[in-house]
């Protein structure tokens, strides 16, 4: 089987960000058809020490092996994708994401995550967001827990 070698992930230019949160609004529009942003957005911009930080999935896919029903797969374009129709809402991926980038909104039982669609990139007035292509081999890690590790 052909496996994707590369994937696009978000890169954040913190120095450009002014905290308008247009990206979050655009993201919640993609996932929940609302401009609420916040907990309905897969990308989160937070202010810490007068600097903005971005918190979002980096497509490394440690969640893939957590899904009991195979609802999480790596698509042909390399993006880690949650198939809502198959998801049984167990939240294992949410609980086990090492960077808490698999999110759960109160709006529905199935989690959601960044799909590298670029909506946030397009709406950012400061061009603080960018989609960059990286090698999957560089980011994946063995998921199972090694005894004594």
């Amino acid at each position: 089987m052909d496996h994707p070698k590369t994937v696009k992930i978000l890169k954040f230019h913190a120095e450009k960000c002014k905290g308008c949160l247009e990206c979050e609004k655009a993201c919640s529009q993609v996932h929940f058809k609302t401009k609420d942003g916040g907990e309905k957005s897969a990308i989160r911009i937070k202010k810490a020490d007068k600097k903005y930080t971005m918190h979002v999935c980096d497509q490394r896919g440690l969640c893939l092996d957590m899904c009991p029903v195979g609802a999480l797969t790596r698509k042909k374009n390399g993006v880690v994708w949650l198939e809502k129709e198959l998801c049984i809402g167990c939240q294992a991926c949410v609980g086990f994401c090492p960077i808490s980038a698999m999110r759960k909104s109160d709006a529905r039982i199935e989690p959601f995550k960044c799909i590298s669609c670029g909506s946030c990139v397009r709406v950012c007035p400061e061009k603080a967001l960018e989609l960059i292509e990286i090698q999957i081999a560089d980011i994946t890690q063995v998921v199972h827990y090694r005894l004594g590790a």
Partner: peptide
């Protein structure tokens, strides 16, 4: 079936308690 096929009275609290436990298992089981 899906994550709310039991039709819980308060699915939001249920998911929150569940996720808290998932995280605990992730961080501490080893």
């Amino acid at each position: 079936f899906d994550g709310v096929s039991n039709h819980p009275a308060d699915p939001i609290t249920l998911a929150k308690v569940g996720i808290k436990l998932h995280r605990e298992i992730r961080n501490l089981d080893r």
